[in-house]
């Protein structure tokens, strides 16, 4: 028993320290890695509590899916594009700090003076073993006693999906098609296209007898509108 308590404190300590690292780290990637550490320690605590299924779910869902999502967002969002979150005036910060300390003291007092303990539920280790393990036990509870919350959660996620899809969708589909038609009039290997996305005037002048500028990447041949595309003279023609 004592060794379990020791392991618990170790895991909990690392989890809390890692959680603090999430908040304190300046680099968002470091925050994400700290989050991984915190999640894994929480999963290990579940193992100590003999909730193996929860531990695996924690690893798969949080450490796997959610962290990958966080890292994706970090990768896709240019950090210099993020708005500056300002911390408020010094006085406000001091008041906030003091209030935070007061809350911490309150939580500490609540934990340290606690004598109340709720009655234990009916799922004792023996009862869990009797049904064949904690996956079976969780399954039975979820799909009998907690049927309504499960369904409500499904609806909640449906609502979230609809909202997220609407907000993340760039434009209404029809508009988007029109935009696509307008913008992406592409001619690959068309003889009369513009050679680069740069305006013609900014390109270095061609050398004698050379139609295309020396060096420089040849990016996608593209014109912004159909008119521009047809009116644009082939590279070099205007220079002659």
């Amino acid at each position: 028993m004592a060794i379990e308590v020791l392991i618990f404190y170790l895991l909990a300590g690392v989890a809390i320290a890692a959680a603090a690292g999430v908040v304190l780290a300046r680099n968002p990637v470091h925050s994400a890695v700290s989050l991984v550490l915190s999640f894994i320690n929480v999963a290990a605590i579940y193992v100590v509590l003999r909730a193996e299924f929860l531990a695996v779910a924690q690893i798969i869902v949080y450490t796997g899916a959610i962290i990958v999502l966080v890292l994706f967002v970090l990768m896709l969002v240019q950090q210099q594009d993020l708005p500056e979150f300002h911390g408020g005036r010094p006085l406000r910060r001091a008041v906030g700090f003091l209030l935070g300390l007061a809350l911490l003291a309150e939580v500490a007092a609540a934990i340290l003076t606690r004598s109340l303990r709720g009655a234990p539920g009916s799922w004792t280790p023996e009862a869990v073993a009797a049904v064949g393990g904690n996956i079976q036990a969780i399954g039975r509870e979820l799909y009998s006693a907690y049927m309504l919350p499960i369904q409500a959660t499904a609806l909640l996620l449906l609502a979230a999906t609809i909202g997220a899809l609407f907000l993340a969708r760039p434009e209404l589909v029809e508009e988007r098609l029109a935009v696509a038609r307008r913008l992406f009039t592409i001619s690959l290997a068309h003889p009369r296209g513009v050679d680069t996305l740069q305006p013609v005037a900014e390109l270095p002048a061609p050398q004698d007898g050379q139609l295309k500028p020396a060096g420089g990447d040849r990016s996608l041949v593209m014109a912004r509108t159909a008119e521009e595309f047809t009116e644009q003279p082939a590279w070099g023609e205007s220079r002659r």
Partner: peptide, 15 residues
Amino acid sequence: MIFLGIEMSSLAVYA
């Protein structure tokens, strides 16, 4: 259920 209901009612309104 209180938690789920409140979340459903406000999550939709965030969007």
